[in-house]
Design a protein around this nucleic acid. Sequence first.
DNA 1: GATCTTTCTTAACTTAAGTCAATGCATCCT
DNA 2: AGGATGCATTGACTTAAGTTAAGAAAGATC
Lengths: 242, 242
Amino acid sequence: MILSRVLETLEPLVPLSVGNKSVKGQPFWTIPKTPCYSIVMANPMISRLFHFLSRFIDLTEEEARALAELDLIREYKKGEYLLRAGETTSTSYFVLQGLVRSYSLIDGEERITQFYQEYDPIAPPCTITGEPSDQYLDCLETSILVVSTEEQAEENLEKYPSFERLCRVLSDKWMAEERTSFNKYKTLTPEQRYLDLVEHRPGLLQRVPQYQLASFLGIKPESLSRIRKRISQRKTPGRSAM
Amino acid sequence: MILSRVLETLEPLVPLSVGNKSVKGQPFWTIPKTPCYSIVMANPMISRLFHFLSRFIDLTEEEARALAELDLIREYKKGEYLLRAGETTSTSYFVLQGLVRSYSLIDGEERITQFYQEYDPIAPPCTITGEPSDQYLDCLETSILVVSTEEQAEENLEKYPSFERLCRVLSDKWMAEERTSFNKYKTLTPEQRYLDLVEHRPGLLQRVPQYQLASFLGIKPESLSRIRKRISQRKTPGRSAM
DNA sequence: GATCTTTCTTAACTTAAGTCAATGCATCCT
DNA sequence: AGGATGCATTGACTTAAGTTAAGAAAGATC
């Protein structure tokens, strides 16, 4: 398995602007170079999908065409729900552009469990377990997603065996990431988690209001405010007392 | 995908005794009934592996033989390390019997991130990312594990395409479980997490000292002690005063 | 059975997040 | 401009976990 090498070469997409509100009408992310599957290049979002997949597998022209013709890409408006607690779905998503969040309702309060941004998979546990979801899924920004049901996937996995491999490799990668961030969450304090967020997902700070970041970090907005104050005071220790 | 049905029918193994110290020399878990692959039945541990796998896939006699002949099952002594922080490995495990824990060292203190028991997979993120592990892996009990390197897996996935499907299905199942427990950890208080543990993994309370449970729950032993006191006082509110 | 060791509990005190409430500061609306 | 709304900050107070230290209880050893 050469996934480690693969991951090293996967450069993140470069944002065109800070915050998606500031430059309206423009795509938020640059369109990446991608290997040339003929049918595919017309649509920049399909192109983006193949750019991502090319890091993990070499699809034949036929497979690429088949995948493109499945026509899996959909746009969801800001505020639109993909899933509500209590429902069950067999649908998974993959974010090509935009921002989706998952949260659960605890005593009437939204507790955000994840933000899904460009190149993130959204695989609700209920697609596997069949149990009613305890999570809500909604779009914080108008988002362009790859949409795939289990049934559809199943069908095409049989037709194109190399998809099976692709799915397994991606599952493994995402599993490792999930484990790693779980471990981080467990071992870091709220302050360290915030600093980790600043370091590793700085884009989120621009795209998400602070009270939602707080919820994601597992604390109250007031606490995040105090943490930020603490940090800024520590960084500027001088120029006090006269 | 019929994994939801599959999961419903997967009954947990029944422990023979409470705590592995009490009944020495006896197997801790009953040996399950399993479909009859001829080569396999000799060894109860291989039998157990196939019992588990049969819930997810029907292997041909040839595939079953191939899998058995890979000779992947090993015993590790109590206290033995499978992985240390700083190292990288391509080896994953699957617990047939025993108890393994992962932890990281924070300021010289062991912070337990997971207990792996019967039927749990152990897939260190470094097998995928290639980065040095931040986690230690060691056996809390003498354990019997399926041992599999990426290279070996890779080789056999090519030879036996249905293994590819098996791996993907298992990855998906484990991914869903990982997500679910992450969400739980985020949304529950330490006290609720303890109660959840009592309800869903009661065996652990017998097999693991309290200070390690506390670490796993993300709190100090003293706090767990207080939490338990709080709970027991709540359950026995009467018979006080005079 | 007495001793040593490990684990668990308790208590007093500290720390940081939660809670509640008030204020400041944008932006949006008409 | 004025008012409403939503979000971030601040302060006073509460709560629960962390810290430190001392014993009690349970197990292991000889």
